[in-house]
Design a binder for these strands. Sequence first.
DNA 1: CGAATAGTGTCTGTTAGACACTATTAA
DNA 2: TTAATAGTGTCTAACAGACACTATTCG
Lengths: 240, 240
Amino acid sequence: MNESEFLQGYDPAAYDRPSLTVDLVLLGISQGAPAVLLLRRDDHPFAGCAALPGGFVGMDEELDQAAGRVLADKAGLFGDQVHLEQLYTFGAVNRDPRMRIISIAWLALLDEAAFAAALAGNPALIPAKVEMQGDAAAVTTPDGDVLPLAFDHAQIIALAITRLRGKLDYSDVGFALLPEHFTLRALQNVHEAILGVTLNKPAFRRRMLDKGWLVATGLREQNTSYRPAELFRFSNPISS
Amino acid sequence: MNESEFLQGYDPAAYDRPSLTVDLVLLGISQGAPAVLLLRRDDHPFAGCAALPGGFVGMDEELDQAAGRVLADKAGLFGDQVHLEQLYTFGAVNRDPRMRIISIAWLALLDEAAFAAALAGNPALIPAKVEMQGDAAAVTTPDGDVLPLAFDHAQIIALAITRLRGKLDYSDVGFALLPEHFTLRALQNVHEAILGVTLNKPAFRRRMLDKGWLVATGLREQNTSYRPAELFRFSNPISS
DNA sequence: CGAATAGTGTCTGTTAGACACTATTAA
DNA sequence: TTAATAGTGTCTAACAGACACTATTCG
């Protein structure tokens, strides 16, 4: 760091600075497919388009706290119910036509209850099914209408899915999309929804059980039409 | 985005904003281990510590351009010689005691020639061997002295290694650390240095050749003491 | 009992690790 | 010829996909 940069560091008025925001991909599983919660924009730019919930980062606020605050403000959810992880920072000069805004994108994984609670708590949230189309994601309303996305949010959502696909098999993120007790079939459904493929049942069961992450509870599903499946819970062997 | 946030967006003077920088992990392989290029800090804070080369992001500068500019200014290298990828954004409130600075960390992979060219071009650069110590990285000079690292740069370097380890097997990043023509033994050496383990030779060769990324050139090493190995080059089957 | 899903046994093909072997070059 | 490394053949163990089978529960 040279002298001018050092001075710039001490004099906040010396140079313009970009604005810094966080944008959240609120991701759940709905009807066998990944789904996100979006907000409809009323104002220019991208009026009428759907956008990720976001907000500016406060000067004395940690980045993950900013993400947690947006989660609480826009979805009524709290950090201990939701897996939050930083995705990537988007900062193209013209990504927002108004001004330079750098956005740190975060991935929030919601289980079915959290997804429903967010929808119930904030009626402005729009649930939308995500479909991967190469580099970008397309989202559709439950009615099947394609929702245009604001800014670079199609890329951000696509990156969220891609990241999740990559981590699903070797990390424990998949469990963040499930309640505390779940059946192996429900776990497989989550994996299939994220990956967009159907998986082999015996192989999937073996692989999951061999990882040592699953604890059999001895409990069974309730109110099923047919043979109820055993309920498992997730247990982190060496908390990572 | 509510009204006050919208106004904030239009009035750069309305709120303080964090400063935004890029920091670069200039990573190569040296003597069978990952090595980074660092700069010694002369001033407070962390005077005497080693730090990653970095710089502020210009208001009209793309993020990858800012990283490329730092690469050119601090190491005399250009983007087409070096694999550059965004790592993570670090923004803890107190990571810099002077003021709030959010830093977007980038990973730059240098082959042996680029590593040497950077060292020759900027005598201030210090090559340092990286050792992973759990969550953080420790760096030592060629003489074996431990170099204290400024700010959160030990974490940033550790994340760079961790990321590289994760991607090494399924992506083509490994080739960014090699010249255009290389032997399979050199490729294996790179993998072993990054992963910090020794690998089985026949299995490694099979795996690499089966990926379809390697093209035999028919050329052979020159000036070896013993049997010269065949030179391969990397060819991206479906440019990713 | 029939329907439907839970859960398992087993075969097969692929792949990684281990290890010994052959091949090639320079001195 | 010897030293040293390049490169290969082959055995074995681990594991995933496929598919058929048994088990359990509800109505």
